[in-house]
């Protein structure tokens, strides 16, 4: 095309040929696209490639086909971690949502006090996950004497929370509820505030009680926010690494080893990069399902008025 000559709508040679104005637009988004391709897509592609090989100190020694995948999904460590992750995710999701919803309902009005309390509730979420889990590990340790004071009255003064599989899992769930309830609250508040108050007034005039109003007005109208909170919390819980690495170290006896932790140990403790990449790809594929749900919800929210 000769320079400077405007061609209003010439016959397009290809559907994918760039219009001049598009060429400039693409220049604007190119750095962004490149860095994502290089540092998100690139590693995934390389990891996918590595997952078919036996890897020793970064040397691809022999092609193994799907052997790594098979070994990973049949290993007791990984299978155990999937069970632990499932228990953790389901219980943590239920409790975090419940507490988040209670916080949202309690702090719905934008009074000065409520805004301040919301901020305080968010503190565990904004600080580093590592530090949060570290501080909880200190509280739950027998050395601190903190749990002995709390559990003493019910006769469990000597109980070591982190040394017992059941209570270690409970501590892990506590970590999640402590950190993420306020996050759920923020997501749910958005939905709560979009409900017109006139609906409640009308229901009150009709004699509906508080519980009935919550079940018949609040919950149905918050469907989208609740689903968004569920999906976003699940993505986070299913992949959790910091909680289990710092708070419980996966113990006792692997009872709290989540899949994220198993992945970390395969890659960075045992240095089995072939197996670790195979598991990473499997976990990533599972995540894609959750991400797809997130996208569906995103589309629905965009369409909503």
């Amino acid at each position: 095309m000769p320079a400077g000559q405007a061609v209003p709508r010439g016959p397009r040679t290809s559907r994918f040929a760039l219009r001049p104005d598009e060429r400039r637009s693409l220049g604007f988004i190119l750095p962004f696209v490149l860095i994502e391709l290089a540092l998100v897509a690139g590693p995934l592609a390389l990891g996918f490639y590595y997952s078919f090989f036996k890897v020793e100190y970064f040397q691809l020694t022999s092609f193994r086909g799907l052997d790594n995948y098979w070994r990973v999904i049949t290993s007791p460590m990984v299978l155990g971690s999937i069970g632990a992750t499932a228990i953790f995710s389901i219980v943590a999701l239920g409790l975090t949502l419940t507490v988040g919803m209670a916080l949202a309902v309690h702090l719905e009005r934008d009074s000065r006090w409520n805004v301040a309390v919301r901020a305080v509730a968010l503190v565990p979420y904004v600080i580093s996950m590592l530090v949060g889990s570290l501080l909880l590990r200190w509280i739950f340790s027998t050395d601190a004497g903190f749990m002995a004071v709390v559990l003493g009255p019910i006769g469990l003064g000597d109980h070591s929370v982190l040394a017992n599989p059941g209570s270690a899992m409970a501590a892990l769930v506590f970590n999640a509820v402590w950190r993420d309830s306020a996050f759920a609250m923020i997501v749910l508040l958005a939905g709560l505030k979009s409900i017109p108050p006139s609906l409640y007034d009308a229901a009150r005039v009709d004699g509906a009680g508080a519980f009935y109003r919550f079940r018949r007005i609040t919950l149905p109208l918050m469907r989208l926010s609740i689903l968004i909170a569920v999906v976003r919390l699940l993505i986070h819980f299913v992949n959790v690494l910091t909680f289990s690495l710092i708070l419980t170290g996966g113990g006792p006896n692997g009872a709290t080893r989540t899949t994220g932790l198993a992945l970390y140990e395969l890659g960075f403790v045992e240095f089995k990069l072939g197996d670790a990449n195979a598991l990473a790809i499997l976990v990533f594929l599972f995540n894609l399902i959750l991400v797809a749900f997130n996208l569906l919800l995103f589309r629905e929210r965009r369409r909503a008025p």
């Binding site: 540092l39 590693p43 990891g47 986070h236 992949n239 994220g260 992945l263 890659g267 990449n277 990473a280």
Partner: peptide
């Protein structure tokens, strides 16, 4: 991209 959880990326990313 905003919803990809980072723990699932660290092994491939370290490899890379």
């Amino acid at each position: 991209l905003m919803s990809i959880p980072l723990p699932s990326l660290i092994v491939p990313t370290f490899t890379f």
